[in-house]
């Protein structure tokens, strides 16, 4: 198969990014809480999506495809950080790539990000897809697990969130 020319890949990537930047940011903010980490993860997610443009066959919607690639990148993202922590590699964060405007999100949304950050890394992906309204079958296909497993995870996540809401309301 002939590789796609870079200019064509850049054009498609630019269109995807313009249309679905919000989706990528959701994944980034769910998996990284510090701004420096978010810049690093955004860079990684953007790179993986840029590289995946060739592989997109149109079997699923672009949003689903980007979600899939972004979640895969996020779930295995810790590598660079770990190397940095072991002193093997400087943390090469490209400053200025992702600029926070300083505006604050809806407090309910901020609360949800904090709760998602408490979940196990694999449950975070299911939680994000559930919150964005993906059907069980789609979540199962993206995560690569059974529908039954998705149902169990979603029930558990909803129960955790409800219990936390009740606890905070009581206090």
């Amino acid at each position: 198969m002939t590789p796609m020319p870079d200019s064509e890949r850049d054009r498609i990537f630019g269109d995807w990014l313009a249309a679905h930047k919000g989706t990528l940011l959701k994944v980034v903010c769910a998996y990284a809480s510090e701004h420096a980490d978010r810049q690093d993860l955004f860079q990684e997610v953007a790179l993986q999506i840029w590289l995946s443009v060739d592989a997109y066959r149109g079997d699923s919607g672009v949003k689903t495809w980007m979600y899939r690639v972004a979640l895969n990148a996020a779930i295995s993202w810790t590598r660079k950080q770990e190397r940095h922590q072991r002193g093997k590699q400087p943390l090469e964060i490209v400053d200025g790539l992702l600029v926070a405007s300083g505006a604050e999100a809806d407090p309910r949304v901020e609360w949800l990000y904090r709760q998602i950050a408490q979940l196990k890394a694999s449950d975070r992906s299911v939680a994000l897809l559930m919150l964005d309204g993906f059907a069980y079958k789609e979540i199962a296909a993206i995560a690569g697990i059974s529908d039954g497993n998705v149902a169990v995870k979603i029930n558990r996540i909803k129960a955790t969130l409800t219990a936390q809401l009740a606890k905070e309301a009581a206090s």
């Binding site: 930047k21 940011l25 959701k26 903010c29 200025g96 790539l97 992702l98 600029v99 999100a105």
Partner: peptide
């Protein structure tokens, strides 16, 4: 909610 207005990306 949409996070896009909260973050700018330097293309």
């Amino acid at each position: 909610h949409d996070l896009s207005p909260l973050f700018g990306v330097d293309q």
